[in-house]
């Protein structure tokens, strides 16, 4: 019988080798007239968004002038888009929102009740009562 290799599928784990920031594009929608866009206009005018863009070099920033309330759209690697409304927000709050969502992965929010998520096999193996020495086994 020929010897065969055991096939194994490689699992992509971002950060194990190289790391790619999941958020790749941010679109800032604002209105040049409306009062609810005041905070967004401030960060555009003062150059704070420019500064933020320089620190986040892997993210493509797009600024769109349009009617209506302002919002920030985040585009992620897993094809999800999060549209976050920023109406009536102050400049610092808008920057906080951009900072927060640009560090997310775009996956649905979930409360993990496990401290560690692992796909590896157990190093020590699984204990089996059948492999205990005969004298040490539990006797009924």
């Amino acid at each position: 019988m020929p010897v065969k290799a055991i096939p194994k599928v490689s699992v992509a784990r971002n950060g194990l080798g190289s790391y790619i920031v999941p958020c790749h594009k941010i679109r800032v929608n604002y209105c040049n007239w409306g009062g609810s866009s005041k905070g967004v206009r401030e960060i555009l005018k003062s150059g704070e968004l420019n500064q933020l863009g320089l620190t986040k070099k892997s993210i493509f920033f797009e600024v769109v002038k349009r009617q209506g309330h302002p919002s920030v759209e985040f585009y992620y690697n897993n094809d999800s888009v999060k549209d976050i409304p920023v109406k009536n927000m102050e400049a610092s709050d808008v920057l906080k929102k951009i900072n927060q969502f640009s560090q997310a992965s775009g996956a649905e929010l979930f409360k993990w009740n496990h401290k560690v998520l692992s796909t590896n096999e157990s190093v020590r193996g699984i204990w089996s009562p059948m492999h205990v020495a005969k004298n040490d086994r539990h006797k009924i």
Partner: peptide, 13 residues
């Protein structure tokens, strides 16, 4: 002060 048992490639939350 919290203990986490890890191997390479694990994700800590």
């Amino acid at each position: 002060n919290k203990k986490y048992l890890v191997t390479k490639g694990d994700k800590i939350i």
